[in-house]
Amino acid sequence: MNTLRLLTAGLAAAFTLTACITDADKGVVPGRAPEKHRPVAEMCDDARDSSGPFIDDWALEQGDYVSCTAHEECTEGDNGRCIGNGHDGWSCSYDRCFADDDCDNVCECEGGFRGDFNVCVGGDCRTDADCGPGGYCSPSFGDCGEYTGVVAYYCHTPDDECIDDSDCDGDGNFGAPYCAYNPAAGKWMCSDSHCAG
């Protein structure tokens, strides 16, 4: 009976995959699982790098560009660290969560902006199971691409125009195209936007 159930589930999943990821004319291979998806929720640890913060001398003279100079100054949350870089400045960062239930949606382990801190991200799914039989829940960039990194997790849809970044080729405007969920369109699409406007 268990074997039969597994076979049935497998057939159903295969059928669903084919149904969900359609239209090979768009360059999307039917039935292919995304390279990045979330089969199960993960707990995040509280380990953070304690070296640094390695602030450039010139940055210290730039007013509010540097809002902390030592990890010990960061006391308004869990595991505070003073982190930054020459482009974005230096500021305190904290682990905002350790499990999905600490957030409205997903706790992204070490998903903080250019840092190793955990942050809550949005979207419409936590794991693949939230996306129906054979569905996939994948991390997505926002409208600033890799600059801001993963901003949410969304289910793939039957109308998707891409599954992975490798499905997006060609004339990127200011950087390589990537596959991301487009909230205005309600589906995954190729984008070459690295900040909107």
């Binding site: 930054g84 974005d88 400045g89 250019r114 840092g115 942050v119 801001t148």
Partner: peptide, 14 residues
């Protein structure tokens, strides 16, 4: 707004 959503301080916050 973007920094609050990201729970981080980025260049956009400046």
């Amino acid at each position: 707004v973007y920094d609050l959503a990201a729970q981080s301080r980025t260049a956009r916050g400046r």
